[in-house]
């Protein structure tokens, strides 16, 4: 099980938390002018990267506060967690994902043994 660092309570087991999907997605501020296609983007489309992913968590069985985290989805390594009010960390400040190809497998952390590692 993942250990997640709640910015308010410290490290806790993942089953205390609920995931809230992609972070830093904002609702269009001009709803009258937004086209169906743009609404569709906001309602249904979210990033789904293999690698660095910005996401929301809520500490449901703890302080019940929402916060953001950065996780490498190819290894599940959590690189950072931060309060909602903080800015999105810049990629330069984050450790690089160790994926060598877009859909390949990382050196550690993947359960996928069917693929030859490069």
């Amino acid at each position: 099980m993942l250990i997640i660092e709640c910015p308010y309570c410290g490290p806790r087991e993942q089953c205390e938390f609920t995931n809230g999907g992609e972070a830093h997605v904002s609702r269009p501020s001009n709803p009258e002018e937004v086209t169906d296609k743009e609404w569709s983007e906001y309602v249904f489309f979210r990033s789904n990267p293999k690698g660095i992913y910005f996401e929301r968590w809520v500490h449901s069985h703890g302080c019940r506060k929402w916060f953001n985290a950065v996780r490498d989805t190819s290894t599940d390594k959590i690189l950072r967690s931060y309060e909602i009010k903080n800015d999105k960390p810049s990629p330069a400040d984050l450790e690089d994902s160790n994926l060598t190809t877009p859909s390949g497998e990382p050196d550690v952390g993947s359960g996928n043994f069917t693929v030859k590692k490069l």
């Binding site: 089953c15 609920t18 996928n112």
Partner: peptide, 13 residues
């Protein structure tokens, strides 16, 4: 699992 991931394992819970 309740979160996006590409690790072919999944959580024990």
């Amino acid at each position: 699992d309740g979160y996006n991931s590409f690790t072919q394992r999944g959580g024990f819970d």
